[in-house]
Simulated scan of single mutants.
Amino acid sequence: MIPLPNLNTTDVLNITQLEFLAGKLPKPNAHTGRPSYTTLELLPGILKVLRSGMRWRDLDRKNYPSGVTHWRRLRFWELRFGLKKTWNSILQKLHNLKRLNLNVALIDGSLVPSFNFLDTTGYSGKYKKTGTKMSVITDFSGTPFNVVFASGNKHDMPLAIPTIANNSVGKPNTILADKGYDSDKLRYRLSKAGIGTNIPIRNIKNRKKQENYNIPLGKMRFKIERTNAWIKSFRRLHFRFDYTLASFQALTYLALIVVCIRKLI
């Protein structure tokens, strides 16, 4: 008999969570050649790369699936199926179980430093670095339910409406953000959509005084910062090494899926 290959292990998810996620992801259906590895066999190795920040080729060990095999499966999930669909289905489960609090949603942008790739990178004057911008929105407990990617030179403001509007769980009642989102135009557009705002004003000359800003509620912004820390606790997302945005998006969506599964199971 041909010995079966050894498989990687991971502490990112427990076995129940791994089996749940594996059941949500597709498996290639090849009609010729040797049988492909199952999703449950390759998922721990992919999560190992995501968590540790190691290179794909560091998975190359004797009697183990190769790093290229893991990378190809991740690309298959993203290009042929779409990991965002899997994330949205998990969010729908959380929403149906009433584990998402959309009374107040929090939004913020963060920069992931990167090499100067042609695909969605730019120089950020704020951070003095080249990278890719991620605009994330969470519910009041900090569960992320949408993300938008842009080049690093993009300001947070133009990303606010796409981040808020293009989500799969519904419209929040109030948006909580920092001074970077201080804009009368943004407040007007959100109010027309029936969404309230709690955004402090910037300290600039001739800026009119703000009324009805809820300071205790504004202090809850630490929850979006905590979520950004959860995302970047996956060391593969500390710095973008992926040449194409599709590969970087796949890893980011997988990290967001892990965060949501931990709240679901």
Score class of each variant (00 low, 15 high):
D184T: 09
A229K: 10
Y253L: 10
K192D: 07
R235E: 05
N116D: 15
H155W: 05
M134P: 01
M134Q: 07
F234K: 01
T227S: 09
F140C: 05
F239V: 07
N228F: 13
F239R: 12
A193S: 14
V259N: 12
K219D: 10
M134D: 01
A165I: 09
A150C: 13
N206K: 15
Q210E: 11
I137T: 06
D182T: 08
S233I: 02
K126W: 00
A255M: 06
K179W: 03
W230A: 01
K171V: 02
T244Y: 13
G196Q: 04
E225A: 06
Q210I: 11
I201Y: 04
E211H: 12
I231C: 12
K185Y: 04
A229N: 12
A250S: 15
K209P: 00
N203C: 13
R236N: 10
W230T: 00
R207Y: 10
N173W: 02
G142L: 01
F248D: 01
I231N: 12
K129F: 00
N116V: 00
G125C: 02
K185A: 08
I199K: 00
S168N: 08
K154F: 04
I215P: 01
H238F: 05
R240Q: 10
L176A: 13
G180Y: 01
T163K: 03
R226N: 15
I231E: 11
G194P: 04
N212K: 09
L176N: 14
Q210F: 03
K128P: 00
L186V: 12
H155L: 09
F241L: 05
G170M: 08
A250L: 12
K209V: 03
T130F: 00
C260D: 14
D178V: 13
L251R: 10
H155V: 10
A165F: 12
Y253Q: 11
I257P: 14
N206P: 02
K179D: 05
T132R: 11
T121W: 01
A229F: 06
S114M: 00
S124V: 03
N228S: 03
A160M: 05
L176D: 14
A255P: 07
S233W: 01
G131I: 00
